[in-house]
Nucleic acid binder design. Sequence first.
DNA 1: ATAGTTGTAGAACAGGCGTTCTCTATGTCC
DNA 2: GGACATAGAGAACGCCTGTTCTACAACTAT
Lengths: 219, 219
Amino acid sequence: MSRIVRRTVELSDRQRCMMDYITAFWRDCGYPPSIRDIVSGCSLSSTSVADYNLKILERKGYIRRHREVSRGISLPHLLSADHPRQVPVIGVIAAGQPIPVPDSDLWDATSGAETVEVPDSLMKGHSDVYALRVKGNSMTDALINDGDIVLMRHVNSVDNGDMAAVWLRDEKEATLKKFYAEGARVRLQPANSAMQPIYAPAENVEIQGRVIGVIRRIG
Amino acid sequence: MSRIVRRTVELSDRQRCMMDYITAFWRDCGYPPSIRDIVSGCSLSSTSVADYNLKILERKGYIRRHREVSRGISLPHLLSADHPRQVPVIGVIAAGQPIPVPDSDLWDATSGAETVEVPDSLMKGHSDVYALRVKGNSMTDALINDGDIVLMRHVNSVDNGDMAAVWLRDEKEATLKKFYAEGARVRLQPANSAMQPIYAPAENVEIQGRVIGVIRRIG
DNA sequence: ATAGTTGTAGAACAGGCGTTCTCTATGTCC
DNA sequence: GGACATAGAGAACGCCTGTTCTACAACTAT
């Protein structure tokens, strides 16, 4: 007769407490707890109890342990989801005002510049990403609102159809448009299909960067 | 005579190597490296060299160290930024189609539903947040594009001026508009000021949720 | 009752790991 | 040259920490 195997992923009170403690410790300290940290944090009586239950937590997939390594406890869901990238907001884009070009040495972690937290799904592994805050309503034809954050990649050239931040030399104006090279001239197509495109001579447009995302906070 | 103090935040090659190694180690292993890990990873000759440069890295704000704690190295920018919340994408919003109401028990971490990673700055600590994927171009008057992710809070009532997802009973249509109660009728104002508002009797509109953010991925 | 499983206790071991002390080499400023 | 700050090398100390071994109680199946 076959036996019914309880294949539970439920946790005992003690294991739940340990998971909570590990998560909290990580959040508060920035590094994993040792077994003895867990012992005192969860009022356990012995390191062997902690080890015993940690083995169970690992078997159930709640944690990952690394043998013979002090504090070798990692949380898979923090590991798999890439950490959010802090992206610098290096300036403001608005009609009639220039965009400061990102100085690659200035906007690292230590710089005091404002940053926004960006989901990795928007970054796709690229590191040369910066952000601009949109001022004014001049971008509504690109479905971009006052106060939005636009995510940019610093590129020198773009493909046809890419949304890009372009600087119009003569007009001294920056705008976000879809870019199409058409021989000697450039067609700048608003994202909103109801709007008409702008045409400009190629030497009048300067690519500032390619738009890879928009983040809008409301209320 | 006063001395000119070089207050540099620049790193030597060795320190840059160590930062890169620490970051990579963390990403790969899920826990911090020990000093001796860094020694071998960066081909240093002694633990004292690692310690010496780690002290500098801490003084410059690149890392945080915790005394007498093994692997007590944490990265401030990973610590300060709250971990991104995984928000469930519970459905699609498009003209002429209903929005499924979020079932609070279904969309926790264990549910297999699609989720998006959302910066905490958009959530502001709220937990009753879900997301909808926008299908079609019917929302362009709200500056929302096909494929965008709209972040919603599950509320039963909204204040005047809030952007909300509203369900129009008679028209059997969902749309995103600014909401204004005007006596027995409701004015639904597109976010785009160039567009005209819609008026509807109050009993014909049903609040599905309040929009708190928009995320758009491009290219 | 006996054997097996699960959960808990306590202690000891051995290597991991941060710290620190001494020594050396290289510049810089006067 | 001499004083001083910076940077690195090597080794030793001693606590930290994961692991493991033994023992014990409670429960279950046969």
